[in-house]
Amino acid sequence: MKIARVCGTVTSTQKESTLTGVKFLVVQWMGGEGELLPDYAVAADTVGAGLDEWVLVSRGSAARFIVNGETKPIDAAVVAIIDTVSKDNQLLYSKRTQY
Rank of each mutant, 00 (worst) to 15 (best):
D52S: 14
P38W: 01
V57M: 07
V67T: 01
E33V: 04
V47I: 03
V42A: 07
V47G: 10
S61D: 11
L37E: 15
V47C: 09
V47M: 10
G34S: 05
D45F: 06
D39H: 14
P38G: 12
G34D: 07
L56N: 07
G31L: 05
M30A: 07
L25T: 04
L51D: 11
G50H: 13
L37K: 15
V67D: 03
N68M: 07
G48T: 05
D39P: 00
G31P: 12
G48K: 08
W29L: 11
L56I: 14
P38L: 01
G31R: 11
V27L: 05
A62Y: 01
I66E: 09
W54F: 12
W54D: 08
S58N: 09
S58Y: 00
V22F: 04
F24N: 04
N68W: 02
I66D: 03
P38Q: 10
R64I: 00
V27K: 11
Y40G: 01
L51F: 14
L56Q: 11
L36M: 14
P38T: 07
M30E: 07
V42E: 12
F65K: 13
G50S: 12
V55G: 10
M30Y: 03
V55T: 07
E35P: 06
F65H: 12
R59I: 05
V57A: 09
G60Q: 03
A41C: 06
K23A: 14
V27D: 11
L25Q: 13
G60D: 05
S61M: 04
D52L: 13
G31M: 06
L36F: 08
A41W: 03
V42Y: 12
F65M: 10
E53H: 09
V22A: 06
